[in-house]
Design a protein around this nucleic acid. Sequence first.
DNA 1: GAATAATGTAATGTATATGTTACACTTAAA
DNA 2: TTTAAGTGTAACATATACATTACATTATTC
Lengths: 67, 67
Amino acid sequence: MKNNVKIFRVQADLTQHQLAEKVGVTRQTISLIEKGKYNPTLKLCLEICYAVNKTLDEIFWVDQEEI
Amino acid sequence: MKNNVKIFRVQADLTQHQLAEKVGVTRQTISLIEKGKYNPTLKLCLEICYAVNKTLDEIFWVDQEEI
DNA sequence: GAATAATGTAATGTATATGTTACACTTAAA
DNA sequence: TTTAAGTGTAACATATACATTACATTATTC
């Protein structure tokens, strides 16, 4: 599951730990999502969106062929 | 977890059963998502998007206050 | 060059998304 | 007025998202 979490997290000047706190998960969960090793739930995706002020499409959209 | 799955599924002229088949889950899962009783995974959200030709933001965005 | 911050990741446990089976209700077609 | 299609939902099983704890590596910073 490729995504742009890392790009926008850094752009928002947040560490993994800070983002994790803001969205209510652990640092490890953020790390694994950034690495594409987790298939996060919609609720967590939305929390990340709010935290870095981006939309679902901006952070999590991937075309059908490359899912 | 409110969403617009039902609206766009009907618009795409699909039954719950047909959408479920297209995205590779059971009818029950679609039903529960439409009813807002499940917090679906990103991968499933994307599959639903492809099936009804809509984006994540169109189907699944909800503002922070109403999550 | 030791101390600390930021990150990667492994092992194990828990909560929950999803599957399976099944039954009930509603509605449209026959 | 039955038959079948579409939908809601409950009980139980399984897979996996996420937590917890812990250790390692790589910059910084003192």
